[in-house]
Computed example of a mutant assay.
Amino acid sequence: MPEPQTAAPFQVRPIATRRGPDPRQDRSARTRLLVLTAAAELFAARGFRHTSMTDVADRVGMTKGAVYFHFPTKEALAVAVVERYYAHWPLLLQQATAEERGPLETTARLLAGAAAALRDDVVVQAGARLQLERPRTDAELPTPYVDLTELLAALLVRAEQAGELHREVSPYAAARSLVAAFFGTQHISDVLHERAHLAERWSETAELMFRAIRAG
C-alpha cells in the first residue's frame, strides 16, 4: 500500500451497470428516491436474493412498470443503494473534520458517526448487507472495506506525524484492525439485537482500540 500523506476525500466509486433515465425533474427525483428507499428497506431486511422488483413496487405503491422506468433491473437498484451507502462516508468525514480535532480524534469521531448511521439509516444498513452478499448477487459491486481502510490509514499517518500515535503502532496495521473491529462489532450487534445497541457496543470497542494505539 503506498504511503498516504493526507486524508484525501473519500471517493464514491462509480459502478458500471445499465441504469434508468437521469432524473431531471423534482417529481422524478422524488419518485426515484422513494423507490430506492423502499428497495433499501427490503434489501436490509431480506437481502438481495429474497427481494423482487414486485416486492419493491408493492412497498412503494407503484406498478412494476413504473419501478422499471427508474431502475431497469434489480441489479441497478442494488448498485444505486450501494452508491448511496458509499456517499455517506465523505459526509461523515466532513462532519468529523469540521470539529477541527487532531487526526486521531477525527478517526474516532468518523467511526462513531458510522456506527450511528448503521444503527439509524436504512440505506446504510442495506448497503452494508449488499456488500456482504456480493458473491451471491448478480450486480458488480466494489470490494468492501478497502477504501475505508485506506482512508483510516491516511488519517493515522497524520496522527503519527503529529505524535498522537503510539511509537510501536503501524498506521496501516491500526487501520486494518479498526476496520475489522468496527464491522465485526456491527455484524454481531445486527445478529443479536438488530443494531439497537450498536453505538454503545462500538463505544466500548473503540475505547479499547484507541487506548492501545494512542501515544502514552
Results as ranks from 00 to 15, higher is better:
Glu3Tyr: 12
Pro4Tyr: 01
Pro4Ser: 06
Ala7Met: 06
Ala7Gly: 08
Ala7Tyr: 01
Ala8Arg: 15
Pro9Asn: 06
Pro9Thr: 04
Phe10Met: 03
Val12Ser: 05
Val12Pro: 02
Pro14Gln: 09
Ile15Tyr: 00
Ala16Ser: 11
Thr17Phe: 00
Arg18Asp: 08
Arg19Pro: 00
Pro21Ile: 04
Pro23Phe: 05
Arg27Gly: 13
Thr31His: 05
Leu34Ser: 14
Val35Trp: 00
Glu41Gly: 07
Phe43Ala: 10
Phe43Val: 06
Ala45His: 09
Thr54Asp: 15
Asp58Pro: 02
Arg59Trp: 06
Gly61Leu: 08
Lys64Val: 10
Tyr68His: 13
Phe69Asp: 08
Phe71Trp: 03
Pro72His: 01
Pro72Ala: 02
Lys74Tyr: 04
Glu75Met: 03
Leu77Trp: 03
Ala78Cys: 05
Val79Ile: 09
Ala80Glu: 02
Val81Glu: 00
Tyr85Arg: 03
Ala87Arg: 02
His88Phe: 11
Leu91Ser: 10
Leu91Arg: 14
Leu92Asp: 02
Leu93Thr: 07
Leu93Ser: 10
Leu93Met: 10
Ala96Glu: 03
Glu99Asp: 12
Arg101Cys: 14
Pro103Asn: 09
Pro103Glu: 04
Pro103Cys: 09
Leu104Val: 03
Thr106Cys: 10
Thr106Lys: 03
Thr107Ala: 15
Ala108Ile: 02
Ala108His: 09
Leu110Thr: 07
Leu110Ser: 05
Leu111Asn: 01
Leu111Trp: 03
Ala112Pro: 04
Gly113Ala: 04
Ala115Ser: 12
Ala116Gly: 13
Leu118Ala: 10
Arg119Glu: 13
Asp120Gln: 14
Val124Gln: 05
Gln125His: 05
Gln125Gly: 03
Ala128Trp: 12
Arg129Pro: 05
Leu130Thr: 04
Glu133Ala: 05
Thr137Pro: 02
Ala139Tyr: 02
Tyr145Lys: 08
Val146Arg: 14
Val146Ile: 11
Asp147Cys: 00
Leu151Tyr: 05
Leu152Ser: 00
Leu152Ile: 10
Leu156Gln: 00
Arg158Ser: 12
Ala159Tyr: 00
Gln161Leu: 12
Glu164Asp: 11
Leu165Cys: 04
Glu168Trp: 12
Ala173Val: 15
Ala174Val: 06
Leu178Tyr: 04
Ala180Asp: 12
Phe182Tyr: 09
Phe183Pro: 01
Ile188Glu: 12
Val191Asn: 07
Leu192Ser: 15
Leu192Asp: 14
His193Asp: 15
His193Tyr: 13
Glu194Tyr: 14
Arg195Thr: 03
Ala196Gln: 14
Ala199Leu: 11
Glu200Gly: 09
Trp202Pro: 01
Arg211Thr: 14
Ala212Tyr: 12
Ile213Gln: 01
Gly216Asp: 13
